[in-house]
Design a protein around this nucleic acid. Structure first.
Lengths: 222, 222
DNA sequence: TGATCCAATTGTGTATACAAGAGGGCCGGG
DNA sequence: CCCGGCCCTCTTGTATACACAATTGGATCA
């Protein structure tokens, strides 16, 4: 990892924000965070800048950082963009698949199956990530894979919340299965459509899920 | 501005990279850059991190930063993703257009017309940017607009190169015109297709244009 | 003669100190 | 009593100092 302290602080703040430990709209004092995490201001600053880059906090010149609140609408927008990018990745994967990609995707898919069948949510969460990243890689578009990966990571906390509620594991796996069939059969447009739908569904689910969360968030930002 | 020194350094490095003053693959020494720009290492580090976030430099743990070289393939990939996102923005714009959006887009479009007719390349470059950002805004998807804007900025130097060569101003304007017609008539899918094509064309043009540039770049990374 | 290991040097990662700007409170005037 | 200006403080932005890790060179041993 590039910088251990920075990464640690960044992840901690990220978790604190997602878990609601740091309320949206709350001011983030650098020295306060520094003492809280037992590091100096320098890594805290860098962490805040990274979080600002991914839109999790807002850096106001000379006036400190605040936690930005993403209402459900914005989260849905993020899933929508994710869907579009994943769709493109899937279409490319269907066209450009090689033996290695096929093996990687199949392995990840089987991992998902095992986790889904045993109703292992944490396992599925992990295998699901592997599965999606395998598709990104199979697009053979480095930049697209990076963009997908970055957005995937940003949506990670929301995805994770999702697996806690509905019994979506089996449904998700079956969607995966349809996607895999499309990709393996080289049907680019079907792969695109199915992946897009698979991701948009997650956004839809979240619209409901996050209403309460967003209400809280919205209260704090005014 | 958030941080004047940081911004200054960041822009300087960015320009140096784009202008070829800093060759791809070249090591970026922090103290060297600091002395070069007359600031301390801290803002240089922050600038490098920002540049790393947009993929212009690569930060290797304990081993310094290097200028990443984007081969033509990668640039094409970037335009491809841009095309997808702009297509989505266009589709949303067509569906969600309100009077204000319509006026903004029309104004930017007329600006493009004026610049194209007088063959004012710098003017067209500027108006073109306004035009595209107007569409992003008209998508009424904050996140999508942000993503499009960020990617647009990353592609800016390559776009700029493009306008220098071909007499693409008129062609570009006519593509814009078709896009505007689709959006104003509320035809989401046509808007998507036309915008996508408009952007992909730029990527195609660049494939040719950047061959020489990319060769140089590739040599340095090995 | 080649390979491996150790040490020195270089450059990053972190901490702390200093300076400057912005916000809030207090005091004075209307 | 209220409004405005000034000063103080708090926090950020920048600089510098220090420590550790990695790489590279040389030296020694096989």
């Amino acid at each position: 990892m590039t910088e251990n302290a920075v990464r640690k602080v960044r992840d901690e703040i990220e978790n604190a924000v997602v878990s609601g430990d740091l309320a949206p709209g709350e001011r983030l004092d650098e020295v306060q965070l520094a003492t809280r995490f037992g590091v100096s201001r320098t890594p805290v600053r860098e962490a805040l800048m990274q979080l600002s880059a991914i839109g999790m906090v807002e850096l106001r010149p000379r006036r400190g950082a605040i936690v930005v609140s993403h209402g459900p609408a914005r989260i849905y927008e993020m899933f929508e963009v994710m869907a579009e990018l994943e769709g493109l990745a899937g279409a490319h994967a269907a066209r450009r698949l090689d033996a290695k990609d096929r093996a990687t995707i199949a392995a990840a898919h089987e991992g998902c199956r095992a986790a889904a069948e045993t109703n292992d949510r944490d396992g599925y969460y992990y295998e699901n990530e592997t599965f999606h990243f395998a598709i990104y890689a199979a697009s053979h578009s480095e930049f697209l894979a990076e963009q997908c990966g970055a957005l995937h990571r940003r949506l990670r906390p929301f995805r994770r919340l999702q697996l806690r509620v509905a019994n979506r594991l089996m449904a998700s796996f079956e969607e995966h299965d349809a996607v895999v069939q499309a990709i393996f059969s080289g049907d680019a447009e079907q792969a695109r459509a199915r992946l897009r739908a698979h991701v948009v569904v997650q956004g839809d689910r979240f619209g409901d899920l996050l209403s309460a969360y967003a209400e809280t968030a919205r209260r704090n930002t005014g």
